[in-house]
Amino acid sequence: MVTEMMVLLAKVVFIFALCIGAVPFCVWFERRGSAWMQGRLGPNRLGPFGLFQLVADMIKFFFKESFIPQNSHKFLYLLAPAIALVPPMAAIASIPFCSEIHLVNLNVGVLLILAFTGLEIYPIILSGWASNNKYSMLGALRASSQLISYEISMSMALLSMLLVYGTFDLTEIIRYQQEHHWGVLLNPLAALIFWVATYAETNRLPFDLAEGDSEIVAGYHLEYGAMKFAIFFMSEYVAMIMVSAFLVTLFFGGYALLPGMSWVVSASGKAFLLPVFELFSFFLKVAFFMFLFVWVRWSLPRFRFDQLMHLGWNILFPLSLANLLLMGAVAYFLR
C-alpha cells in the first residue's frame, strides 16, 4: 500500500517536473525563435543564449503583487488558475514516452485524453466570467465557441484513425504503427485536420481569437497578474506539449524509432539502448511539432472570427465527416 502510494507520488512529481521544466524552454524558444524569424536578437543577455531570462521572469512573477479585482467573483477568480494546469498535465500522463515509461496505462487512453482536452475549457470560461470584465468575457466566449467547433472535427479525424487501429489503447496504437505504417501515411487528411484543430484547441495563432491582442487586450486572462497569470501562461504551453505528444502518438508513430535508429540499436546489440532511443525519437518528434507551433505563429496572420467559424464548420467538419465515412468503408472492406 505504502509503496503504491510512493509510486503514485513519484509519477505525479515526475509529470509535474517534466511540464514545469519544459515550459521555460518552450517560452525561451518562442521568444528567441520569433526574434530570429524577424531578424532580431531576442533576449540574449542573461546566461548562455539568454536561457536564464526565464528564471528572472519567474522570480518577477513570484514577487509581484497578487491582485484581485474589486467586483470579481473571488472564489471562481482564484479557482480558475488553480485548475488551469490540471487537464493538460493529466492528459500528458497517459501518453507513453517510451516502451518502458508509461505512467497511466489505461486501455482507454485516447478517451481519457479527449476528456481532459474537453476540460481545458473550464479554467478559460471561469476566468472570463469571474473577472467581471467585458474583454475577459468576450475572450472566454470566443475561446469556448472555438474549442467546441474544432473539437468536433478533431474527434472525427481521431475516430477515423481509431477505425484503422481498432483500439483505444495508446500502446497498441503505437504497436500497430510500428508493424504497419505511421498514421500520417495511412490517412494524411485526418492528420492535417487534426493538426489544424490542435491550433484552435490550444488558442494559438492563427486561431488566437481568445486573446486577440488588438481587439480584446489579452482576452480571458486580462484581469490576472503575477503568478496567476503565469499559471495560465504555463497551462497554455503544457497544453501545446500535450497536443503535440498526442498528435505524434496518433499519426507519427509515438515513440516508434525514427528511420535509421533501429539499425543503430541492433548494431550495438545492447537491449537497454532501445528505450533510450525510443525516448529520444519521441522527444524529437514532439520538439518538431513544438517548433511548428512557433513557426506557424510567426508566419501566419490571425483569422477573423467569422472566417474561423467558416473554416471550422463549413470546411473541416464536412471534410472530417467524409473522411470518417471513407475510412469506415476502407476499414470494413479491407479487414
Binding site: G33, A35, W36, M37, G39, R40, W295
Partner: peptide
C-alpha cells in the same frame, strides 16, 4: 520565415 530563422539561428 524559415529562411530568416536559419539566417538568425
Amino acid at each position: 520565415t524559415l529562411r530568416y530563422f536559419i539566417r538568425g539561428f
